[in-house]
């Protein structure tokens, strides 16, 4: 299988604070990687480096064959193929749900109006929100907002999806609807990197779990290895608190 994302010796600091230290990993096409760890472990920063939302201080990241550290690449082109879903949804409040989904394909002239509209309808159907097409984000619940955010990313036909704690800002009763949409994506074979605290999700659909702490990938392996037979003391300690 081909590696979709290759991370080599990634280093990232905010001022004097080193957030990521020599992180290396490879993510294969169609793989679902779940990143877990305590807050401040660098897992969100790691994810944000994968589409260059954070400038890195050292190492290389190769996505889809594009070297993100290469100054000559057009990062906007690369990002078209990497969808990202944020903890706080970040929907565009001045646009309706459908306009949110259509905005990027139209602005980037990837689709014409008819195509973009058709694509938006299709994506909203996929996340179960066809009836909300013409309302503004302010009228949606948290779970609905996050599903729109997923539809918005999918409208660009990405081949990798990054999820940054997609359910952390949700009321508990809405977590399920978002996870179900994500599970649908897994079934469709999407390459996914998910930062989350949902261990059930990790166990059920994750191909691999990365456990991060203090800026390092401390341990990685299948959900069974990590969740049932962790070897590192820090992993054991963390899991004893969350499971």
């Amino acid at each position: 299988m081909a590696s979709k994302i290759i991370v080599k010796n990634l280093n990232k600091s905010f001022g004097k604070l080193e957030v990521l230290k020599d992180v290396s990993t490879e993510i294969e096409e169609g793989e679902v990687v779940v990143v877990v760890g305590p807050s401040g472990s660098g897992k969100s920063t790691f994810l944000r480096c994968l589409n260059s939302l954070e400038e890195i201080n050292g190492g290389t990241i190769i996505v889809d064959g594009y070297n993100l550290t290469d100054k000559k690449i057009d990062i906007n082109k690369v990002r078209r193929n990497i969808g990202m879903v944020f903890q706080h949804f970040n929907l565009f409040p001045h646009k309706t749900v459908k306009q949110n989904v259509m905005l990027a394909p139209l602005t980037l002239k990837i689709m014409d109006k008819t195509e973009a509209s058709k694509k938006a309808d299709e994506m909203l159907r996929q996340v179960g929100l066809s009836d909300k097409a013409n309302v503004y984000p302010a009228q949606l619940s948290g779970g609905q907002k996050q599903r729109v955010a997923i539809a918005r990313s999918l409208a660009m036909n990405p081949d990798v999806m990054l999820f940054d704690e997609p359910t952390s800002a949700l009321d508990p009763e809405m977590v399920g609807e978002v996870l179900n949409v994500m599970k649908d994506l897994v079934r469709m074979g999407m390459t996914m990197v998910v930062v989350t605290h949902e261990m059930g999700f990790a166990r059920e659909v994750g191909d691999r779990i990365l456990f991060m702490d203090g800026g390092y990938i401390v341990e990685e392996g299948t959900p069974d290895q990590i969740l049932n037979h962790p070897r590192e003391p820090r992993t054991i300690d963390f899991l004893s608190k969350v499971l």
């Binding site: 944020f86 990027a104 980037l108 990313s153 660009m156």
Partner: peptide, 12 residues
């Protein structure tokens, strides 16, 4: 987050 969401979709 508005700028980040827009940039992550590929907008300049």
């Amino acid at each position: 987050g508005q700028m980040e969401a827009a940039r992550s979709l590929g907008l300049s």
